[in-house]
Nucleic acid binder design. Sequence first.
RNA 1: CGGGGUGUAGCGCAGCCCGGUAGCGCACCUGCUUUGGGAGCAGGGGGCCGCCGGUUCAAAUCCGGCCACCCCGACCA
Length: 567
Amino acid sequence: MRLAKSLVPTLREDPADAEALSHKLMLRAGLIRQLAAGIYVYLPIGHRVHEKVSNIIREEMNAIGGQEITMPVLQPAELWQKSGRWDGIPEMFKLQDRYGRDMVLGMTHEEVIAWIASREIRSYRDLPQIWYQVQTKERDEARPRSGVLRTREFVMKDSYTLDPDVAALDRSYAAHESAYRKIFERCGLHFHVVESDTGMMGGLGAHEFQAPCAAGEDEIALCAGCGYAANVEIARGVPAAPVFPPGGREEVATPNVKTIAEVSAFLKIDPRLTIKSLLYVGKRTGPVLVLLRGDHVLHERKLARALGGDEVRPAHAEEVRQHLGAPAGSVGPLGARGPILADEALRDGDYVVGANREGYHVRGVSPGRDFEARFVDLHTVAAGEACPQCGKPLAVERVIEVGNIFKLGTKYSEALGALYLDESGKEQPIVMGSYGIGPARIAAAAIEQNADADGIVWPASIAPFHVHIVVVSLRDAGQVAAAEEIYTACRAAGLDAVLDNRDERPGVKFKDADLLGVPVRVTVGNALAKEGVVEIKERRAPRAEHRVPKAQVVTTIQSLEVLRGVR
RNA sequence: CGGGGUGUAGCGCAGCCCGGUAGCGCACCUGCUUUGGGAGCAGGGGGCCGCCGGUUCAAAUCCGGCCACCCCGACCA
C-alpha cells in the first residue's frame, strides 16, 4: 500500500469522545470511524488488522476440524420462539418484514445451528461436528462503550460443536480451549483462562479468555500459587477473620449513625466487626435480607444465583421501612421477617448489627445463634483474600473478555428437534457447545497492552503491515527509486509493506509511522547518498536500529526477532 | 434504565453569565521560502452555532421541549 492516495486519516489530537487508550489510538491512527453509538466503520488499516486476526482464528479452527459456514444475520422469529429466547432479551433487535412477520437480527446463532442439525444430522455416525462462521452480530447493548470494546454491531467468530454425549462434548470443548490458547498466543496477547458464570443459559460449564487491560470491563481473581483463576462473578475468596473482642449482647444508641463507616467510627471498632444488612427484592422470591461483613461488597450476580437465578434489585427506602420497621441505616437480622442470606464470611464471630429500631444498633450478635440464616458466598472477592484452593493470596485484575467457551448441553437441540439415532437405534438429543471470539476486541486489547506514548505497537502477527517504508525527501530521485525498490522486494519476499510516499515533511511521516505501530520501519533518507545505507528500526522499545545497503534490507528484516513466526 | 457531562468549520476549542458583524489553533486551497521528528510568511475557501418552538426590534447567547454523543452505575445468552 502506498500512503499518498490511501484512506489513512491520522489525527494529531485525541478525539474528544474517546476515553479508552485503544479507542483514542484506533481513531488517531485512522483505523476506524464511528457512525453511531457502538457502530463503527473499519477503514483500510483497521480492516487489514481485523482480517489478520480473523485469518489466524480461521487457521486454528480449521486445524481442529472446524468447517466454515455462513449463517444469516436476519432470522425468522419462529426459531427464537421455539428455543424460548424470543422474549426477555432486551439486547435483541427485532423487526418485521413487509408482511408483518416478526424477524430478529441475530445476536448469536445457536438456533440456526440447531435448525441445520435437525435437518442434516441423523445418525451417531454423523457426529461429532464443528461448524463455525466469522459473522456480524447485532446486539442492542444498554451501553456501548470504550470504542470497539463494546459495540452494538461486531464481527464474531462463533463455532458450535455437535456431539453424541457429554464425554464427547468434553473432548470438543478441550479442543476449542487448546485452539483458543494458540489463537491468543499467536495474536501476541497476554491472557488468562478463567472459570465463568454459565448465566441464565444454565449450561454445563464455561470458561472465558480474559486479556488484562486498563479499559477492561470485567475483573478476575487469580492465584499465583495454584493457578486458580475465575471471574469475580463466581470467584470465591476467603477473607482473613478479624479479632473479635469479648463482650455480651447489648443494644447501643447510635443517633444519626447510618453507614458502616459511621457505625465503626462512632463505636471505634474495625468495620470488619460489623454486619452490613441490605434488603433486596427478588422478582419471584420477594424480599430477602442480605448480610455481609461491613467491609465487603455484595456481588449481585451471586445473590441472583443464590435465589435460583431470580432477578434482584435493592429495596426502595419505603419498602425497607415497611418490611423491617426501621430506616435503611438501622436495619438488621434480629426479628426480621422473611428469608435471610448471609455471606460465608459471617459463619463465626460476634458482630454489630442494626437493631431494626431507628438510631440503635446491637453488639455481640452471632449469626446462627441469634438468628437463622442461610450461608452462601455473596461478597465480591477483594485482592489479598486467600485462594479457596491453596490459601495463597489472590490478585484481582481488570480484564477484557476476548473469548469464551461454553458447554451448552441439549437445550437447543431439544427445543428445535436436533436429534440423532444412537448405536442401539434410540433417538437422542445432540449435545452442543458454543464458542466465541471477538477479533475487534483482540485488536483493541493488543493495542491496550502494547501501546506507548508515541502510539500503537503491534504484535507482528496482527500488524496491518510488517514493514513501513519512509521516503524522507520526495525531491531526491535516488531516495524515491530506492524506496520503490525496497517496497517491491519486501512484497516479493512475502512481507506486507506500506510505502509512505506522501509529499510531507519528514517529521510528519515519522510521527505517523510511530502512531501506526508497524513493527519495522525502513527510512530511506540522506544516509543513502552519503553512506549508501538505509535505516531499519524496530517500533518496539528499545527501537533497535540497523544500517544496511538497500540490497540487504529484506534479509536483514527477515532475520529480526520481532518478525519471528511471521513469514 | 438511574446519575453526570457535552453539542459552534473536517479535528481540538473560545464566544453563551451580560442578546446586536461567528472567532482561534490545526487541517484544506494558492504563492514564495523550507525539507531527518507534527515548518515559516502572505493570501484564501469552508458554518442550518444539534433540532423544534417561545420571548424579543434582534437569539449561538434567554426560556421550554426533543434528539445525539461521551462518562459512572445497572445490564451484558
